[in-house]
């Protein structure tokens, strides 16, 4: 497999993304809403009520859950891009000429995956950096130390977010083969969102707590699902399937 071929495809996808203002807004608005919104919310909680010592645990629990939000955002962003990228090719019927070039199916799918992965990951990293900086300022007086960076945040950003993005890209690829418009593909690929949302709900009802170990286990499970789904993605995105069975 030639990485340079995949990168040429990624660059083409970036060129299209740059021309789509809605996609740029999508990448900016959602992460930045979390970056600024969550610290603002905590600031309001701290300043709007009398905080007892026990509330510090409450605050730190909230911060762990907030960090998890960024994994969810990464899944949403990458699903959108991956769904648009593949269904966009279907709508424009550009896959047939592309497949006639000396590029393998795996190079095409890798190129498309990178075009969904890189901006989603970059947007989440940047947004998280802003979030951590602001949150440290907001909580420093209450906690007496800078809450971020911590091990949980590192695990979320460097493990859970990447494997979550890969999962969403895989689901988007498979769902894109069954639909003919990006919105439907995006809605179908939101299946990737369900396990993350379930984890969040389980933490809210105190069934699990988002400790570093829990996050490592969740990341491991998602990574295992990524690996298990990979052969299915390759089978779905084969030139024979694309040209003969895709809707």
């Amino acid at each position: 497999m030639s990485l340079s071929n995949a990168w040429i495809i990624t660059q083409k996808e970036f060129a299209i993304i740059r021309l789509k203002k809605t996609m740029i807004y999508f990448y900016a608005v959602l992460p930045l809403a979390l970056s600024f919104g969550l610290p603002l919310l905590i600031w309001h909680v701290i300043n709007g009520a009398s905080i007892r010592a026990t509330d510090m645990h409450y605050i730190s629990g909230l911060l762990n859950a907030f960090e998890f939000f960024f994994a969810i955002i990464a899944v949403i962003l990458s699903s959108y891009t991956a769904a648009y990228s593949i269904v966009g090719e279907k709508i424009q019927k550009s896959l047939e000429p592309l497949l006639s070039t000396p590029v393998s199916d795996q190079e095409i799918i890798l190129g498309k995956a990178l075009s969904a992965f890189i901006p989603s990951f970059a947007a989440v990293l940047l947004a998280n950096l802003i979030y951590m900086t602001l949150m440290n300022r907001v909580t420093y007086n209450l906690l007496g130390y800078s809450y971020y960076p911590n091990l949980s945040a590192v695990i979320v950003l460097l493990l859970l977010v990447p494997v979550g993005i890969i999962l969403s890209i895989e689901i988007s690829t498979i769902s894109s083969s069954r639909v003919t418009d990006p919105r439907s593909a995006y809605q179908l690929s939101m299946v990737a969102f369900i396990p993350f949302f379930t984890v969040y709900v389980l933490t809210e009802i105190s069934v699990i707590s988002l400790t570093s170990m829990t996050l490592l286990i969740i990341s491991g499970i998602v990574a295992a699902v990524d690996v298990l789904m990979y052969p299915l993605v390759i089978k779905t995105f084969s030139r024979e399937m694309i040209l003969t069975t895709w809707k």
Binding site: K12, I16, L19, Q92, K93, S94, L95, E96, S100, P102
Partner: peptide, 18 residues
Amino acid sequence: IRRIIGLVAENVGLYEEL
């Protein structure tokens, strides 16, 4: 073979934004 052929498919299949 794919290096020495060119294909003009029934649908032009261009990237409309580019």
